[in-house]
Design a protein around this nucleic acid. Structure first.
Lengths: 210, 210, 210, 210
DNA sequence: AATGAATGAGCATTCATTCAT
DNA sequence: AATGAATGAATGCTCATTCAT
């Protein structure tokens, strides 16, 4: 029994080892630029071994996304379900949640956002594709939920909450990618935090009914 | 005389034919996913012919970007230099400008935004790379300029105009890519226009000093 | 009539212009390394024009060889038919002849020698192939003839004259190519002349019966 | 243990298999004429497999040359260091050495000689290029060394030994290539051995001081 | 006669993936 | 479970050659 557990644990470890390597390499070279061999090297494994843990390159990439997606959705839903905060405070909390996810694993967040906005092959198994699509739907709904309260109670502009959610999500994705690009121009600058903060402040001010 | 003109025209047409095909294919498959052969087929030409008009795949891709970048910068600078508009109106005009560029050539705009946010090889000739980087710098400065007036005259929040520019640009990029992605989920929906409109409205309300 | 003559002359000029360019380019880049476009540029013509004067790249290359072959054969036959020289003097004269051909057009001589020793495609028309083969046969026979006299009159070693011819020709070809290669290592050195002179001196001494 | 050894042996076999195929194909079609696919077919492997054993086509070609160069240099240096032979005998021994190398692997020797006399791209890694250049330098010096003794002791003509070395090497290269060419005209004839023998005999006679 | 434009055929090289061990 | 070895399938790009004008 103990043996099986250990094996299970080791297997999970290997998996993690691969995922870590993949994050690094994908973030550095993009999906197409990264080769399976690159990742295997980084993981100190042979390419063939990766295929014992992931069906193919796409599945590996997707799995990174799934991981972030889960964290993201969870955090956002937490905010959504958090009682005792007024709508404005909830939006502040949403900002904090988004930033925390980014802060914890910036490269991977960038991967997810790129993946979402790319038309890359995506030869995913239907299940994976569904999982990802559902993940996106879920956190978007959660974001919308956050705005819904404010709209319903009349303190926010009277618009469709999903539109607000799109704006926040688009803004987050856009800023992350854009600041990352700018960092490429001038690596000393990473303004995501204050810029995101300012953006949310503006939204909070602008969304209030009067 | 007429003959040479006609030839010139035809040559320009061919070039355009290639550019059109490339836009379509790049937008559909991304840079790495698109093959030169794909583009050639779409253009109803042989791959070798593409190389008569563009030095290589990267140059072709870059040239699409440059085209959009030029239009974009021009439009934004127009707004910037437009007198007789108060800051709020200028921001509305900026929104209109951004949307117009998108509307005129959505696939290509998506390409540009992806290109900017990708870590693609970018084996561009130094000149092309510089041109593109400079293009980006230019329009960002123009956007910042638009906000600067409002800040200086005290009607806007007292923050660095470049931060505002980052927000608007990130928002635009994020929304375009995100709405495009959502359209992939459900092709019937294209909410860029109203969503962008709402976003700018919120910004305009939120950025005002009180 | 005059017009036709002029045209004929001009045509011959064009041909020469192409040949000159081809010699330069082939010598610099080798047969496979040289592109038809390279040659056309050097000749300040369009690639298509070359095909009005030569059936294809191989034929152009062969024609350069033919030119040299003709000169070479002629010179060698001159030596052969020159009366009033004893065998030893004739061999000295042969050396002089070989060197003169080289001196007059070194690059082209190198081309010929390389061509002879290569297994390059040689998609020549049967006529061209025959012409070249015959050319080689002819000058080799002439060289053999030069030695034949000495053998017959008993002043040279009693061996087959063709063997002597092979030696002289192989030696010439080998030295030209080898010294050219060495010049690549150290461009200041061109020792063909003295080395060839020494070689012939040795042969002359060594071939005498006692 | 035995397993690893076997694997090692098999790997070396594969390498040899590729080398053999490459020699054949390069000798038959020349460097540019030979395609990687040709070689792979001859080796009964896939093209991709060649790249597991050689970095690229140039490296494969160079490695063939290096192999011969090593054997050649070794053999010549052996002659050079062989005591108890007078200069004339050493030259005979040199002839034997050269011929043996040729006999053992004629196609490859032809490759080397062509390679040396060609202007082929030679996109070699600096190391390979240096190795090859050094190889050539080394055996030439060894040949010169062989003549030096005879010059010093006054039995040979008083000329620079390197000139003699150039002559012998040029002669060897020239004869090998020339006889190979003639064999193309008439495959039944391979006169390298007797012709080389005669040439060396003549040199030996001609180089002696009186 | 000359050529601009176009292309078919090829080619070296890469890489995700498989499989025997 | 892990991997060394092998490869099928591409892919970007080149070039000799053709042909309408």
């Amino acid at each position: 029994m103990g043996i099986e557990e250990r094996k299970e644990r080791e297997k999970e470890q290997r998996r993690q080892q691969i995922i870590d390597a993949a994050e690094k390499v994908f973030a550095a070279k993009g999906f197409s630029g990264a080769t399976v061999e690159n990742i295997a090297e980084e993981a100190e494994l042979s390419p063939a071994t990766l295929y014992l843990y992931f069906k193919n390159k796409d599945a590996l990439y997707a799995s990174l996304n799934l991981k972030i997606l889960k964290v993201l959705t969870e955090k956002i839903e937490n905010v959504y379900h958090q009682n005792g905060l007024n709508p404005e405070e909830k939006i502040k909390a949403l900002e904090k949640a988004l930033y925390e996810v980014y802060e914890q694993d910036p490269l991977n967040v960038i991967n997810v956002l790129r993946f979402q906005s790319s038309e890359e092959p995506k030869n995913l198994s239907p299940e994976l594709a569904t999982q990802i699509k559902d993940g996106a739907r879920k956190y978007l709904r959660a974001i919308a939920g956050i705005f819904e309260d404010g709209v319903r109670e009349g303190s926010f502009l009277d618009r469709h909450p999903v539109a607000f959610a799109d704006i926040v999500w688009g803004l987050f994705a856009g800023l992350v990618l854009w600041e990352h690009t700018k960092k490429g121009f001038d690596p000393s600058k990473d303004f995501l935090r204050p810029t995101l903060g300012l953006a949310i402040e503006i939204i909070n001010r602008g969304i209030k009914k009067n």
